[in-house]
């Protein structure tokens, strides 16, 4: 119990928890929006292009998280590819701080998590009955109205499911922030690791882990109520 009191009472732990939640939430939203676009494209393109795009989604999916974080570091650092290209074309006067800060962490995490969101949404879009949209159009719905009034609501459960999946993954991130955060972005799981391995405060580490676990379970329960268990499971299959 004393460790839970310690969590409640320690301001620095609050800050780490807030950082974790903020980064994870931002990441999830960006990842899901991007994934929706990718999934929509996947579901509505020809089979050849679909193969190609799937490959583009899958290849980074198979790469180790470490390799990806280090690649982003090389691309985004001050004299990295992105900044030198922007500098040379004269678009910016001094290098943009893209990495070794929170921006870098979010870019790295979004890149990691997008595939996890693409597949549930894509699966849901594929299982939609296209006759519904034909029906919508036949009663005079314009394409954008069909999309917003019919298509989007039908895919909302899968979007929520994907968002949850990504959020839960994101809460546990620790290699990506460690590498791309420049040492100044410390998330909860890294803090747990330090407490276990270095400072040997196992009680505190355990309490924080339980907190993380309970948060995750609560989130799952919430979305189940929100979206309906069957739909969510179906969407995430």
């Amino acid at each position: 119990m004393q460790f839970y009191r310690q969590i409640m009472a320690t301001e620095s732990i609050h800050r780490i928890i807030l950082t974790t939640l903020r980064i994870t939430a931002l990441t999830s939203i960006i990842a899901v929006v991007l994934a929706y676009i990718v999934a929509y494209a996947l579901a509505h393109m020809g089979p050849r292009q679909r193969m190609l795009l799937l490959l583009c989604v899958l290849i980074p999916f198979w790469l180790s998280v470490l390799v990806r974080a280090l690649s982003w570091l090389i691309l985004l650092r001050n004299n990295g590819l992105v900044n030198s290209a922007l500098l040379e074309t004269g678009l910016i006067g001094s290098p943009l701080p893209l990495v070794r800060n929170e921006t870098g962490v979010i870019i790295g995490m979004v890149h990691y998590l997008v595939p996890y969101a693409v597949f549930p949404i894509y699966a849901a879009m594929q299982s939609l009955d296209s006759r519904v949209f034909m029906a919508a159009r036949s009663v005079g719905g314009r394409p954008w109205r069909v999309f917003f009034d019919v298509y989007l609501p039908l895919t909302v459960p899968s979007v929520l499911g994907a968002g949850l999946l990504v959020f839960v993954f994101g809460l546990g991130f620790f290699i990506t922030p460690a590498i791309l955060g420049g040492g100044r972005v410390v998330m909860l799981s890294e803090y747990v690791s330090i407490s276990v391995l270095q400072t040997v405060r196992w009680g505190l580490a355990a309490a924080l882990s339980v907190l993380l676990l309970v948060t995750t379970l609560a989130l799952i329960a919430l979305v189940r109520r929100f979206a309906g268990a069957g739909k969510l499971l179906g969407a995430a299959r």
């Binding site: 620095s12 800050r15 950082t19 040492g183 972005v185 410390v186 330090i194 270095q198 400072t199």
Partner: peptide, 15 residues
């Protein structure tokens, strides 16, 4: 003091 110091340090430099 190392345990307390490293934890304070990490807290202090992050965020």
């Amino acid at each position: 003091h190392y345990d307390a110091a490293v934890e304070r340090w990490i807290d202090g430099i992050s965020g």
